[in-house]
Amino acid sequence: MSLYSQKVIDHFANPRNVGTMENPDGVGEVGNITCGDIMRIYIKVDENERISDIKFQTFGCGAAVATSSITTEMVKGMTLDEAMKVTNKDVADALDGLPPVKMHCSNLAAEALQAAIKDYRERVSDNS
């Protein structure tokens, strides 16, 4: 096992915003079982296009859980445009870094969020 920062351990041991959501406005899922990490993010979007609520579920290692958790914390209250700009690197930096081996495989939370926002936008355009 790689060496994790205290922040990673904290988010792993006490994940923020973990769970599912009733009637989400958008859902994004990335990863696959072959590589061992799957992340799903649910969002609620208010009338000002801000993320009013967010939940995640993750199958994966400590880094996968921690990146999911801190991403939800970072973007809650952001506008969708702001949230779209969050990168995997921003997430890793917010955790005081990740072991190099984890940078690729377990650092997918920003992508899961972007997928959720895309899903929301597709739903809106389908309804308009």
Partner: peptide, 14 residues
């Protein structure tokens, strides 16, 4: 089932 090994190790380590 449904759980990843490293997160088990880490949880047990805690």
């Amino acid at each position: 089932k449904y759980v990843e090994g490293e997160s088990l190790i880490l949880s047990l380590d805690l």
